[in-house]
């Protein structure tokens, strides 16, 4: 219980720091929102008036106070590009991205764990070098390269899957999955390679431990030793790394979503950045960082369920 309260307080503190960093990064910009709204050719007096009314002449600390106040009360401002309230806009896009993030994570884990374990079991033999080489090539290919290859192969070449667009799962679930599949795969392949390497490294360490020898000395079969005794210990560290990769995924969706015209958070953030839509940039960056932080928190809490050593600590 004390652990949970500690974690919760830590989350609030981190969210506060995230908001400060977000605000600071977006305020090093030469030029401001008033200029964006009225254009560079506008009348200086009108510009000054708008600045005054938007509070842009106030000290930064007051501007930050107003912004964070808005965030807390649900008034996130209006996007300059989309002319829509930012809150609902982000809420809608986050679900679209959640779909491909979850799908790519699932694809990656389902393939990476068996492959990594397999490589670790056959350490320094051809199985290991094959798996390790494939994984190494996998982590070296940029996401958009995967994306382009997938588009060329599955969309243009074979015509099996759509290469562009987003369909809401509530409208048509099957179609939504079909649209989300290629972006998820583009995200998931690199991730899978990375997690395979991690799983292999973790399992190699675990298989060298004394309790594995004890398990073998009991006469247990290699299958039991590796897949029960070994994997039960590897799953925690691998999940932790997978959790950390959520951050990487939320960076990659910017590239992949814009490549696939998949209108999620990444696409939205990209539009905001391209058009220097400051309020939308602030909102998106804040939300992404918060989601990444919360995903890591979730993994940490999950870890405490898996590992009895932390459960009591």
């Amino acid at each position: 219980m004390a652990y949970l309260i500690n974690r919760l307080m830590s989350v609030v503190l981190t969210l506060f720091l995230i908001s400060i960093i977000t605000f600071a990064v977006t305020n090093i910009l030469p030029g401001d929102v008033a200029m964006m709204i009225m254009g560079t050719q506008s009348n200086p007096e009108a510009l000054a008036g708008l600045r005054e009314s938007l509070g842009l002449n106030d000290p930064l600390i007051m501007q930050y106070g107003r912004w964070i106040g808005g965030i807390l009360t649900g008034d996130w401002g209006t996007s300059l590009v989309f002319k829509e309230p930012i809150g609902p806009l982000i809420a809608q896009k986050v679900t679209a991205s959640a779909l491909i993030v979850v799908m790519s994570m699932t694809i990656a884990l389902v393939c990476a764990i068996p492959l990594g374990v397999w490589a670790a079991v056959h350490r320094d033999r051809w199985q290991d070098s094959t798996a390790s080489t494939v994984a190494l090539i996998g982590v070296s290919l940029p996401d958009f390269f995967w994306g382009i290859m997938l588009i060329l192969l599955f969309a243009r070449g074979l015509g099996w899957l759509p290469s562009s667009g987003f369909v809401h799962p509530v409208d048509d679930f099957q179609l939504a999955i079909r649209h989300a599949f290629l972006p998820s795969l583009a995200l998931g392949l690199g991730l899978m390679a990375h997690l395979t390497r991690m799983t292999r490294a973790t399992m190699t360490g675990i298989l060298g431990q004394e309790f594995i020898r004890v398990a073998r000395a009991k006469g247990l079969s290699e299958g039991t030793v590796v897949w029960r005794y070994g994997l039960a210990n590897a799953i925690g560290p691998v999940m932790t790394v997978a959790g950390l990769q959520v951050g990487y995924l939320f960076g990659s969706i910017i590239v992949v979503e814009s490549l696939f015209n998949y209108t999620g958070m990444g696409w939205l953030t990209y539009q905001a950045l391209l058009n220097r839509d400051i309020p939308l940039i602030q909102g998106s960056v804040f939300v992404i960082a918060a989601v990444v932080m919360l995903a890591n928190l979730a993994v940490d809490l999950l870890y405490t369920l898996i590992d009895p050593r932390i459960r009591l600590a």
Binding site: E210, F211, K218, G219, P308
Partner: peptide
């Protein structure tokens, strides 16, 4: 060998802190 390990021959090791599986 599997039917002998743990049945005909038992073995104990040096490191009691790591000889047991921490998650079972």
């Amino acid at each position: 060998m599997r039917s002998i390990r743990g049945r005909d021959i038992g073995m104990i090791f040096q490191e009691p802190m790591t000889s047991l599986n921490p998650v079972f």
